[in-house]
């Protein structure tokens, strides 16, 4: 991966100590009566500036719901989520849309790019939607960082899966968002392509000061993060700093062995 020149701070200055994003008593309930499912159960969580957080957990643990609620894609049943100082529940659809457009970056598992637009057009899409001119120098450094300069004029169909995900990462970073949310960004990639996407995300945190929250079920992917949160049954059940793939894997096995009801401090 090309070294990144730190041309300007990636994150707008915010009051010291305020997390890039935080949630308090996050609760999400689907359905009612017999079909009632509690996806999130009073979760408190902070995502600190310049930190790469991985959220892990078995299927149905609520990890995707947590990300969706934090990113303004889904509404909470109760509790509050903030991006910086902005409380999401106070925003209407247009406010949420603006927030996603200007302050959040997204990388999805698949279908990240519009097929009719070129790679470069996909990268600048949120800014184009906002009618803003991208910061050329910053855009340059992002493009170089993902190593796609030669493929900017290609359409998604002409790019490999790994290249498509790197374009998605570049788009997520191009607007210098407060937080990048990545939902299983390597879920559809082979391990080599996945590694390059993950290294890029880590580089963006280390060298550009970006804040990244990633949902994954892959211990190897989680090992790129600074911190791993483990979810089970809608609650955060564990947290691990400086994770390695082996330690994460071991921790996950413990869930399975205990039938998902292990409680850890």
């Amino acid at each position: 991966m090309t070294p990144v020149q730190q041309t300007s701070p990636a994150v707008p200055a915010t009051a010291a100590g305020t997390p890039a994003a935080r949630g308090r008593a996050l609760t999400k309930v689907y359905g009612r009566g017999d079909t009632r499912v509690t996806a999130l159960d009073a979760v408190d969580v902070d995502f600190r500036h310049g930190e790469f957080t991985a959220i892990m957990g078995p299927s149905g643990s609520g990890k995707s719901t947590l990300m969706h609620c934090m990113a303004g894609l889904d509404s909470l049943t109760s509790g509050s989520a903030w991006i910086g100082d902005t409380e999401l529940s106070a925003l209407d659809d247009r406010g949420l849309t603006r927030l996603r457009r200007d302050r959040i970056g997204f990388v999805f598992q698949a279908f990240n790019l519009l097929p009719t637009l070129t790679a470069l057009e996909n990268i600048t899409l949120p800014m184009d939607i906002a009618g803003r001119t991208p910061d050329a120098a910053w855009l340059d450094s992002v493009v170089d960082a993902v190593g796609l300069r030669s493929r900017l004029g290609h359409r998604p169909a002409e790019l490999s899966g790994g290249q498509q995900q790197r374009v998605a990462c570049a788009r997520a970073l191009a607007g210098r968002p407060q937080v990048v949310f990545a939902d299983e960004p390597t879920g559809n990639l082979d391990s080599r392509s996945g590694a390059s996407v993950l290294s890029f995300l880590r580089t963006s945190v280390r060298e550009m000061g970006q804040t990244v929250v990633m949902v994954t079920h892959d211990p190897a992917a989680a090992s790129y993060a600074d911190r791993v949160l483990f979810l089970a049954d809608g609650r955060i059940v564990d947290e691990m700093a400086a994770p390695t793939a082996e330690r994460v894997l071991d921790r996950m096995k413990a869930f399975d062995a205990a039938g998902r009801i292990v409680e850890v401090g």
Binding site: D93, R94, T97, R101, D102, F111, L114, L125, P126, I129
Partner: peptide, 13 residues
């Protein structure tokens, strides 16, 4: 899905 993506990355209604 395209519409969903556009809305996610900030296109308003």
């Amino acid at each position: 899905r395209e519409i969903g993506l556009l809305r996610a990355v900030g296109m308003d209604r």
